[in-house]
């Protein structure tokens, strides 16, 4: 068993007097889909923002281990290194596309770091000649691969903002995959999708886990409220409430967990005490 791709230890995030994430520890195994669920305001998106460098955590550590054993301490990395070196990509709860750019251009922007590495800085590249142009053609092919995968190939030359909602969600995932991540963080990808789109999304996420861009697969971290998605595709579920982890396990176990049910459905005080007592006994 290799080290988990993501290991979070004692993560704390405090905004003034508000403790959004409190001593959270969790891990995501390589090649698995790990879901983070919890009621609204439980701190799920805050965890994502800490992982992807939008917030600097107040305390704790976030370690990413690649297949070759290389490790990255995300809480110390500048944000653009998190994507470029630690290879983490994310999507947003409220879709954030480059609306005035075409679908294809969105995917080209995602390959910025790779193209810069591959010689875009050479003067010849600026004039439009030289070996760099082949790299750019390869980048277009990579974009085409994900467009075909997400069923957007017909709309490649349309403005991203002109796509229907479900297609925008898929485009955001395709764009994240074009950064060639080792860990993909999806923030409520099924929000606002109809059941058919939701099924297609499940398929896409499973494809990403098993195959990915290079056939080696990509680990997935998923925030989701839609239980049909979570329970169908997750390998492992972490439940948060008020910034703390209240449960952690396989989907079947989570479904039965009284603490999780209490957190989601709410319980009256007597019942809550009973649940607490039951947990004490365990």
């Amino acid at each position: 068993m290799s080290a988990p791709i993501l290991a979070v230890e004692g993560l704390t995030m405090r905004f003034g007097g508000l403790l959004a994430v409190d001593q959270l520890s969790l891990s995501a195994a390589r090649g698995e889909i790990t879901a983070i669920i919890g009621p609204n305001g439980a701190g799920k998106t805050t965890v994502f923002n800490c992982l992807t460098g939008f917030y600097r955590p107040t305390g704790g550590s976030i370690t990413v281990t690649h297949e070759n054993g290389e490790t990255f301490r995300l809480e110390r990395l500048p944000q653009h290194h998190i994507v470029r070196d630690a290879r983490i990509a994310r999507t947003f709860q409220n879709i954030r596309l480059f609306g005035g750019m075409t679908v294809l251009e969105n995917l080209m922007v995602a390959q910025h770091n790779r193209l810069m590495r591959e010689g875009a800085r050479l003067p010849l590249a600026l004039v439009g000649f030289g070996p760099y142009m082949r790299r750019e053609a390869a980048a277009v092919d990579r974009a085409r691969f994900w467009l075909e995968r997400t069923g957007l190939i017909e709309r490649a030359d349309d403005a991203a903002a002109s796509l229907p909602y479900g297609a925008q969600r898929r485009l955001e995932i395709a764009r994240a995959m074009c950064t060639e991540p080792q860990l993909l963080c999806l923030d409520e990808p099924a929000a606002g999708l109809n059941p058919r789109e939701s099924d297609a999304l499940n398929e896409l996420i499973l494809f990403i886990r098993d195959t990915g861009a290079d056939g080696r697969g990509c680990s997935v971290l998923l925030i989701e409220h839609d239980m049909s998605v979570v329970m169908t595709i997750s390998d492992h579920i972490v439940v948060l409430d008020y910034g703390r982890k209240i449960a952690d396990g396989a989907p079947a176990a989570i479904r039965e967990d009284p603490k999780v049910i209490a957190a989601y459905l709410g319980v009256d005080e007597e019942e809550a005490l009973a649940v607490d007592a039951a947990l004490q006994k365990q």
Binding site: T52, G53, F54, Q79, H80, H81, I82, V83, R84, A89, R90, F92, R96, L97, F98, G99, G100, M101, E105, M108, V109, A110, Q111, H112, N113, L115, M116, A120, A125, L126, R175, A176, T179
Partner: peptide, 22 residues
Amino acid sequence: HPVGRAWEALREDEIASRALGL
């Protein structure tokens, strides 16, 4: 060129640009 596309991406959405490692 990637540099110019990054400029336009920044104009369109800075948060998304950061999430893509720009």
